[in-house]
Amino acid sequence: MPFLDVVDPAFDFTSPEALAAQAADWYADSPLGLLVLRYAETQELLRDRRLDHGGDGYLRRNGITSGPIHDWWVPMIVNHDGADHRRLRGLVGRAFTPRTIDLLRPFIRAKAAELADEIEAAGQAEFVDAFANRLPLAVMCELLGVPAEDYATFSVWTSDIGMVFSLAAGGDAAARVERAVAGLDGYVEALIDDKAKHPADDLISDMVAAWRAERTVTREELRNLLVTLVFGAHDNTRHQFSNTMVTFAEHPAQWTLLRDRPELAEQAVREAMRWRPSAATVFRRAAEDFEFRGMPIAAGTFLTMAVQAAQRDPRAYPGGDAFDITAVRTAPLLQFGAGPHYCLGTALAHAELGEALPVLAHRFGPPVIAGEVTWRPAFGIHGPNELPLRFAEPA
């Protein structure tokens, strides 16, 4: 069995080593356990009811058995199945109706234009801070009803909490996640009380009103849902923005094509997510003993779905070794999961990138990386820590 050292800071799921392992078989070994490298097997396992999300097992293998991270992670919606999952999803699902997303589109375009003005005035930008961080944060706060003056506080917490998927990297990841969970828990508690007393036309007010009227969830479950929602609506999307700009910097002709054909925006978003997804891996745990493709898998075994590699699998994406915003790809993306746990925020992330990219492409020439870029670990939520950019003159 090939071995891929995914915890090595230099590891890349699209390296020749990783793609050679994918060509050889559907799986490989790693410090995280079994890696699933191919598209078909990943898609099948994401839908397999014999797997769950791991709950406290994931934290235990990373040395966490109690404390703020444990108290947030274990009761999280993704760690529930069946009736409990449907009950929790029923409350939070009202955030992401097509009508809600469409009503946000003018706000997204206006905010993207405002941030582009600032970049243009500066001449170049550290893109993570100047745009990738600020746009999804503003959209999330607009959707939920979080006061604008709290953006800066939220930004640190909602960025750091995403390190929960990178605990195996060590360092200060656990400390950062713990501080973020504690901060968000306290903030959301106060926000629930405020929205109960002073309801407004926003999602948190709606969820608080439904919680008080229907009593289908406890206050602790409501707080957990809101903390998770705040995190999910920001961190994944900010990394997807940055990943997308890195990709266009590597493929400047595709940027020019998007400028000339803005109708390709939605297709460009899907291709950017396929090529360099923010969720580079997705974790699952065997809830029982079973056999898959002739391999016995014991209950408690963790499987890491190598989404970034799988989304370049030529068996699912003919010609998928090229980034091409004109290509019609029929295989669904994997980074948002599948089945009952398919990510509720998928449509919002697509809308944000789909509205913002044409604004940037119309205003600027192709992005050029203008300095050193460091990255989050290759597993978990993956993207640049910083992204210094300048923009070439339009052709």
Rank of each mutant, 00 (worst) to 15 (best):
M245G: 05
D260C: 01
A298G: 02
M245L: 12
E220Q: 06
V282A: 14
V208Q: 03
A200C: 12
L226V: 15
N243Y: 03
P277H: 11
D235K: 00
F283Q: 13
F241P: 06
E263H: 07
D194M: 08
A265W: 08
V208F: 14
A272I: 02
E263F: 02
T244G: 15
T244F: 01
W211E: 04
S242W: 05
R276W: 12
K195H: 14
E250S: 03
D193K: 13
T244I: 01
E266A: 09
S242R: 07
K195Y: 14
R261C: 11
T244V: 13
F292A: 02
E220V: 13
D289V: 09
F292E: 03
E288S: 12
A280D: 08
F290A: 00
H198Y: 15
L264M: 04
D201H: 06
R270G: 10
K197T: 08
D193E: 14
A200G: 15
N224T: 11
E271Y: 12
D194E: 12
T281F: 04
F241D: 02
T301V: 15
S278M: 05
D194V: 13
R285Y: 09
V230Q: 07
Q254E: 12
D206W: 14
R259P: 15
D201M: 02
E271R: 07
P262N: 15
R212S: 07
E214T: 11
V217I: 13
R284V: 09
A265I: 04
Q254C: 11
R285F: 09
T256I: 09
A279V: 10
M295I: 15
T237N: 09
A209I: 09
E271S: 08
S278E: 05
L229T: 15
Q267I: 04
P277R: 06
H239K: 14
V269A: 05
P296T: 07
N224V: 09
S205A: 11
E271G: 08
H251L: 10
A209M: 14
N224A: 07
L258P: 00
A287H: 02
R276F: 03
A209Y: 12
R270V: 05
A286T: 09
L258Y: 03
R212F: 12
N224Y: 11
S278G: 15
E221Y: 04
E263V: 12
F290Q: 00
F241H: 04
T247V: 08
P262D: 09
G232P: 04
A233K: 01
A265N: 03
M207S: 02
T301P: 01
K195W: 06
V217F: 11
P199E: 10
A249W: 01
F248P: 10
N224W: 02
R261A: 14
A200L: 11
A286L: 15
T256R: 11
D235I: 01
